[in-house]
Nucleic acid binder design. Structure first.
Length: 453
RNA sequence: UCCCCAGUAGCUCAGUCGGCAGAGCAAGUGGCUGUUAACCACUGGGUCCGCGGUUCAAGUCCGUGCUGGGGAGCCA
């Protein structure tokens, strides 16, 4: 007999004479002449209830089954005689695959996220984390589907890079040298190399050949960040589009955020419901608001005016040339507009060299998408396509221009306006689930001083 | 890296003014029951985060280190 997933069993529209399924026991309760066993196989949030009557083989062994044990069950799928579930399985045979001893850490009660983080290898067996990682998987699929439907090509940009290209923070060194050796000529690549902080520069080359492209892969930052929104290894989605200006970039970001949210609400309704009930009571209202409202498009200079006018007290003052602080961003998106806000045209001195210089010579065509509770979820820009302007800005930023010869080539040969952005995959998951710590939406989080599992 | 808070049973937490180490859940035993975070009774379970100090006496006060959390910066 073929094994059936519990998700399929529970969605059956009629009884089934013979079924076989396997999974892990969440709880067992003894009645007078039989035992209730709840089994979960990870295919969905819900467990299936098994009725193991005392007349079935090995009943005394079945009574020793503990939470966490693995079982294989055959029997009949019947309508439940009890309340609380439509279907249950009248077992004909319950085979114990393995018994979890009494020190199994997950108990039939609520555990704290902090505790579960210390057993990250077991936490996907809980309702909440099982749901979170099913949603994570579905979101990845939905992203690929969205881009594929839009005619974008998926580009695998390098994980190991040869220079401090992106200039976005501290890098993780990649080397085969031994400790104490620092002669990069003798290193594996013959020069200094690091883990990537962004696939953007590579993606630009492919946007300028395949048209619309995206990358979706791991990204590494060696920043000593200790917050609920930062990890050293995370995943980023980076679309890059030729013949697209900042306005098109912003519209596209909004369309993508909405499309992915709608997709997950549709594909993961049951799992999202868990978060709406137990993690964030305002989740559904927040997501409905996100889908139905037009995102605000707000020039940086206008954002400053709003922040200067308000009576809200801030720890940091605002002013042209100063980047918006978290408190400013949160005020704009959570209190002032109460919906997602795209701030654009930032002062050039606080943004990287590759962002296109505006005609005012003071701002660049940058844009950040801010959402309530999370803050910045997307950062992007129209790219500087003019060779002379780009070189000037690189020199001003004291970058080793010669190392970027290949990047500059794209501006020498058939350069065109193009735009793109990076979206934090984990931050998007936080927004979708209401989970407040980024360490809880990635299977095995990497943070300063922590590389367990 | 900076600021703030916390660390007590397997888990969640209480512990008053410095004076015998506690509860619920979990585990074990027994009972009851179409139960559903089942229920009832009993039993076992402690390096009070580590180190140092003050004191007749420290879970409690002081110093220090470690770990975790919240906030900030950096950013996605």
């Amino acid at each position: 007999m073929e094994r059936i997933k519990i998700k399929k069993l529970l969605s059956s529209d009629k009884p089934i004479e013979q079924v076989l399924f396997k999974g892990w026991v969440r709880t067992r309760r003894d009645a007078k002449s039989f035992s209730f066993i709840e089994v979960n196989d990870g295919s969905c949030l819900k467990n299936i209830q098994v009725i193991a009557d005392e007349t079935i083989p090995h009943y005394t062994d079945i009574q020793k089954i503990t939470t966490g044990s693995a079982v294989s069950v055959t029997g009949k799928l019947i309508e439940s005689k009890g309340k609380g579930q439509r279907w249950e399985v009248a077992a004909e045979n319950v085979q114990i695959i393995s018994i979890a001893p009494e020190n199994f850490p997950l108990q039939k009660k609520r555990h704290s996220d902090e505790f579960l983080r210390t057993i990250a290898h077991l936490r996907p067996r809980t309702n909440k984390y099982g749901a979170a990682f099913r949603i994570r998987s579905e979101l990845a699929f939905t992203i690929h589907k969205f881009f594929n439907d839009k005619g974008f090509r998926y580009i695998h940009t390098p994980i190991i890079t040869g220079s401090d290209c992106e200039g976005a923070g501290e890098l993780f060194r990649v080397t085969t040298l031994n400790a104490g050796e620092s002669d990069f000529d003798q290193d594996f690549f013959g020069k200094e190399s690091n883990l990537t902080v962004s696939g953007q520069l590579s993606a630009e080359m492919f946007a300028l050949s395949l048209g619309d492209v995206y990358t979706f892969g791991p990204t590494f930052r060696a920043e000593n960040s200790n917050t609920s929104r930062h990890v050293a290894e995370f995943w980023m989605v980076e679309p890059e589009m030729s013949f697209c200006d900042l306005s098109g970039n912003m519209s596209f970001a909004e369309e993508m955020v909405k499309n992915l949210t709608v997709g997950i609400l549709d594909r993961c309704a049951e799992d999202i419901e868990l978060f709406a009930r137990f993690v964030d009571k305002t989740l559904m209202a927040t997501l409905e608001n996100l889908i139905s409202s037009d995102f605000v498009q707000l020039p940086y200079s206008e954002a400053l005016k709003i922040l200067e006018k308000t009576t809200e007290k801030f720890d940091y003052e605002v002013g042209f040339g100063k980047d918006l602080q978290s408190e400013h961003e949160r005020y704009l998106t959570e209190k002032y507009f109460k919906k997602p806000v795209i701030v654009y045209d930032y002062p050039k001195q606080i943004k990287p060299f590759y962002m296109r210089l505006n005609d005012d010579d003071k701002t660049v065509a940058a844009m950040d998408v801010l959402v309530p509770r999370i803050g910045e979820i997307i950062g992007g820009s129209q790219r500087e396509e003019r060779l002379d302007v780009l070189e000037t800005r690189m020199t001003a930023s004291e970058l080793p221009v010669d190392q970027y010869w290949w990047y500059l080539d794209s501006r020498r040969y058939g350069t065109v306006p193009h735009s793109g952005f990076g979206m934090g995959f984990e931050r998007f998951l936080m927004m979708l689930t209401g989970i407040s710590n980024i360490r809880d939406v990635i299977p095995f989080p990497r943070t300063p001083n922590t590389i367990d599992f």
